[in-house]
Amino acid sequence: MSGTGARRWLPYLLLLPGGLWLFVFFVVPMLTLASTSLQEGSLQSGYVLTWRIANYTEAVTAFREQFLRSFGYAGIATLLALVIGYPLAYVIAFRAGRWRNVLLLLVIAPFFTSFLIRTLAWKIILSDTGWVVGALKTVGVLPDNGRLLATSAAVVAGITYNFLPFMILPLYASLERIDPRYVEAAQDLYANAFTAFWRVTWPLSLPGVVAGTLLTFIPAAGDFVNVRFLGTPSQSMIGTVIDSRFLVVLDYPTAAALSFLLMLAILVLVVAYVRRAGTEELV
């Protein structure tokens, strides 16, 4: 009897450490943040919870532009990362042979340096006097007085680069699991290379695509580092605003409301996307 009793409780015991962790470091801060977002006041007089919903409506009206821009940039960067990452993951999974591990290591290698250094490196690459700008001017893509730094292009490039590994790794994991005999079977049934890919490989890799796009899009939407170093005021994203509201303007309620709105917006987008894409195999 006691044996089965212990067995019944075992799963809960196993859940306990993780559950406690989540409660202390996720649920509690969330509640604090939620409360802050509905407060009024100042540091000197103290903040009081007045259920001021207007914090939210005002935040939306004031910073709609930055919200839209954040999702726009994150969307473009995710798409670019998919276009760049898929072929790469495909090659690593199916064609790399003994180079596979080396290539995977190279994909992860940028993580050995800090996020900041990686972003700053783009300042050198895109420098007004650098060879990239020079080459683009020679080809005529950029006008003579044109530049890449301090433009939207630089910000999107920085975001794409910084989050690319988050796209490649899940794609690789899901491509690598595909049994090559499926593709062979398709070819035996007279599918050409493209049809075999489109009807067999691509659908089987969808869980990776969904995971990769989510892992790229979510942090990209809240990013504020790339804009700071590669952009200008007219590229500011919602992360920039939250940062400055919390630290500089000391407007904690608006900052908290913006944080919640960002989470909510991401949640809605993700749920809609996942429902459309399907998640049966996405674990």
């Binding site: 100042s42 005021p233 007219s234 590229q235 920039t240 509201r245 500089v248 303007v249």
Partner: peptide, 18 residues
């Protein structure tokens, strides 16, 4: 003071894009 600080910073931050 704190209130002025907030007003000043709000204006300035709106110019610098935050």
């Amino acid at each position: 003071d704190e209130e002025e600080e907030r007003t000043y910073q709000e204006l300035f931050q709106s110019v610098i894009g935050a």
